[in-house]
Amino acid sequence: MMGVEPIQQALESGAQIVVAGRSSDTSIFAALPLLEGYAPAVVWHMAKILECGAAAVAVRTAPDCMMAVLHEDSFEVFPLRDDYHCTPQSVASHTLYENADPFELKEPSGTLRTNNARYEAISERAVRVSGSDFVHDPEYTIKLEGVRQVGYSTILMGGVRNPYILAQMDSWLAQLDDNIRTRIRNTVGDRPYEIVTRVYGRDGVMGALEPLRGNVGGHEAFILWDVISESQELSRSIATSVSHLAVHNPIPKWHGLISGVAFPYSPPEIDRGPVYEFHLNHVLVPDSPTSLFRTEYEEL
């Protein structure tokens, strides 16, 4: 994730438009004013407030732009849409956004500390911000983010309305898992695969964080099966078995071939292609702030 320096280098070389790869959100706004010599504390705080445009207004009905005016030791910020306005609270609140700690905002060259920031209304719509500190780090660091492919996914979506199944969802799914394992062992052998089952109406949204995870709350539930394996063909083949076994997965109360799942689509299997997960979350000390990033110039 690049800082301001590669963008500044491009600007200093005469670029009029910079198409950048992954940078910190704030670097895009901070590059030019830092180049012009404005104080880092003022610039980085301004950049943090501007990063999501009109997200820092009091009532945002639709996305829009924001304007900031920089001074030596403060900046003013206001929305461009006439019916929007900023308040000290709405501007201060934006430091909360997508950060674990609103008072410490880490950038490649240092940390913005907003503990002593002052937010004053200077009109009905504009707020002046001052008093933050920027602490330069002794070492310049680049955040590395990366993913790895974990396989190919095929999903199934199904609904359950049968109150007997809903009342014993956990054991019904455990039995289905057993049946699936046996079937897959007999058909595809020992090739590795995983089936992630989400039950909406129980803990589909929050998973391990759900305090009410023990029961299905309503009169119906939605089940999302996600089959992941080393190839799309294998995932699809397993999902085809899962859909068939799920529909007819029995409950102790009933005898005969039951129908227990409503599939909204036919065929119920939907290929999702390759799937990934984050596995790289590192901090790197580069040779220089620009050494990891290539810049190409084009004349249009």
Binding site: V150, M206, A208, L209, D226, E277
Partner: peptide
């Protein structure tokens, strides 16, 4: 703020 039980977008994330 707290760490996620699994990273964003991973197999078990909803």
């Amino acid at each position: 703020s707290f760490p996620r039980p699994q990273s964003s977008g991973s197999k078990h994330d909803s």
